Lab assay of single mutants.
Amino acid sequence: MTEYKLVVVGAGGVGKSALTIQLIQNHFVDEYDPTIEDSYRKQVVIDGETCLLDILDTAGQEEYSAMRDQYMRTGEGFLCVFAINNTKSFEDIHHYREQIKRVKDSEDVPMVLVGNKCDLPSRTVDTKQAQDLARSYGIPFIETSAKTRQGVDDAFYTLVREIRKHKEKMSKDGKKKKKKSKTKCVIM
Results as ranks from 00 to 15, higher is better:
T2I: 07
T2L: 04
E3N: 11
E3D: 10
E3P: 08
Y4H: 06
Y4S: 08
Y4N: 04
K5M: 14
K5H: 12
L6C: 05
V7I: 03
V8D: 08
V8P: 02
V8G: 06
V9W: 14
G10L: 05
G10R: 04
G10Q: 02
A11W: 08
A11P: 11
A11F: 11
G12K: 00
G13Y: 06
G13C: 12
G13D: 12
G13W: 14
V14I: 10
V14M: 11
K16S: 03
S17R: 00
A18Q: 04
A18F: 00
A18E: 00
T20C: 12
I21W: 04
I21S: 07
I21K: 13
Q22T: 08
Q22H: 12
L23F: 13
L23Y: 13
I24K: 01
I24Y: 05
Q25H: 12
N26S: 12
N26A: 11
H27I: 11
F28A: 00
V29H: 09
V29M: 08
V29G: 02
E31C: 05
E31M: 03
Y32P: 00
Y32K: 00
Y32C: 01
T35E: 00
T35P: 00
I36K: 00
I36Q: 00
D38Q: 01
D38C: 01
S39H: 00
Y40I: 01
Y40M: 02
Y40C: 01
K42P: 00
K42T: 04
K42W: 01
Q43Y: 04
V44E: 01
V45M: 07
V45S: 04
I46V: 05
D47V: 02
G48R: 10
G48H: 11
G48W: 05
E49S: 12
L52D: 02
D54L: 00
I55S: 04
I55C: 07
I55M: 04
L56F: 07
D57G: 00
T58Q: 01
T58V: 12
T58W: 14
A59K: 00
A59Y: 15
G60Y: 05
G60Q: 05
Q61C: 15
Q61M: 14
E62G: 05
Y64V: 15
S65V: 08
S65Y: 06
A66K: 01
M67S: 02
M67V: 06
R68K: 06
R68D: 14
R68M: 14
D69T: 05
Q70K: 05
Y71I: 15
Y71W: 15
Y71M: 15
M72L: 14
M72V: 15
M72P: 08
M72D: 02
R73S: 08
R73C: 08
T74R: 05
G75H: 02
G75M: 13
E76I: 08
G77K: 04
G77E: 02
G77H: 03
F78E: 13
C80N: 04
C80W: 10
V81S: 11
V81Y: 05
V81M: 12
F82M: 10
F82W: 11
F82S: 09
F82T: 06
F82K: 04
A83V: 02
A83I: 02
I84E: 15
I84R: 11
I84S: 14
N85D: 13
N85S: 05
N85Y: 07
N86Q: 14
K88Q: 07
K88W: 09
F90V: 08
D92G: 08
I93V: 07
H94L: 09
R97Q: 11
R97L: 15
E98H: 07
Q99L: 12
K101T: 13
K101I: 13
R102P: 03
V103Y: 01
K104R: 14
K104V: 12
K104P: 03
D105W: 01
D105R: 04
S106V: 13
S106P: 06
E107W: 09
D108K: 09
D108E: 10
D108I: 10
V109T: 10
P110D: 01
P110M: 03
P110C: 04
M111E: 03
M111G: 00
V112P: 04
L113T: 12
L113H: 07
L113R: 02
L113D: 12
L113S: 03
V114C: 06
V114R: 03
V114E: 03
G115S: 09
N116P: 05
K117F: 14
K117G: 14
K117T: 15
C118E: 13
C118M: 13
C118V: 12
C118I: 13
C118T: 12
P121D: 14
P121K: 11
P121L: 10
P121F: 10
S122F: 09
T124S: 12
D126L: 09
D126S: 10
D126G: 09
Q131H: 08
Q131E: 11
D132C: 07
D132P: 13
L133F: 11
L133G: 07
R135D: 14
S136D: 14
S136K: 08
Y137G: 08
G138D: 06
G138V: 05
P140T: 05
I142K: 03
I142D: 02
T144F: 02
S145Y: 06
K147N: 07
G151C: 05
V152S: 06
V152Y: 06
D153C: 08
D153N: 06
D153Y: 04
D154A: 09
A155P: 07
A155S: 12
A155G: 13
F156S: 07
F156V: 11
F156L: 08
Y157N: 12
Y157W: 06
Y157H: 13
T158N: 09
L159G: 05
L159F: 03
L159R: 13
V160T: 08
R164L: 06
K165S: 08
K165F: 06
H166A: 12
H166I: 09
H166V: 09
K167L: 12
K167Y: 10
K169C: 12
K169E: 10
M170D: 07
K172N: 10
K172V: 11
D173F: 15
D173V: 04
K175F: 13
K177R: 08
K178F: 14
K179R: 10
K179E: 11
S181L: 10
T183R: 06
V186R: 01
V186W: 11
I187Y: 15
I187G: 15
M188F: 05
M188V: 09
M188C: 07
